[in-house]
Amino acid sequence: MRQRVFTIIENSPLTDRVSLLRLRGDCSEIQRPGQFVDLALPGFFLRRPFSVCDWTGDELRLVYEQAGQGTARLRDLPAGEKLDLLTGLGNGFDLSRAGDTPLLVGGGSGVSPLLGLARRLRKQGVQPRVILGFGRVEELFLTEDFYRLGLTPTVTTEDGSFGIRGLVTAAMDVPHSFLYACGPLGMLRAVSEKSPAPGQLSLDARMGCGFGACMGCSIRTVNGPKRVCKDGPVFDKEELLWDD
């Protein structure tokens, strides 16, 4: 973990509720896709954790969804504004376990970290299958970025307005060596149960500190209590307890 000042290069809406934040600064502490940053917002006490969408050189991309007063404030910050970040937080996805045919499943804002993951899997010479789930066609974002990586994501929408009608599980009947997923808890559970392969799931949580000190985001696992921020946010699917 490092504390670093980043400058906003771009802060623009991708959909009604989701925005892209491009930042310039020292990304050297970010080692793996699936890690996150904790961003201090002017006027708010607690930092806000956001999954790293992607990073290259000194450019960091985040995607954030409108969730409350903090993200509403963030949406108003113009390019040029400086932000105080804790970077390189959390464990991130383990790329070494991908195998030949990994499956990436993202739902809603959970699509974000899968882009950085997909880029690095491609660099490893692996061609992942990608399933991206949204509510309706107006909510789609980042899908063209996956195409740019030479991938053909399968898109599902709940109302059938684009791609396959239904939830991401409707598109999961494809053989795969390993599962990487990020999205709402209900989706993660359904995806995890549907996949016969081993896998890793990235969890979302309301956090206090973001670096393991406050115990604000604890979950129960088969290996005892774990902190989503420090021991996660990525957990082996076999490690999670769903009946809580």
């Binding site: 006490f45 607690l46 206090g208 985001c217």
Partner: peptide
């Protein structure tokens, strides 16, 4: 959880 909430110039915890 949730165990943490934002407050004006502070935070709530119920760890």
């Amino acid at each position: 959880t949730p165990r943490i909430a934002e407050a004006p110039a502070g935070m709530l915890n119920a760890v």
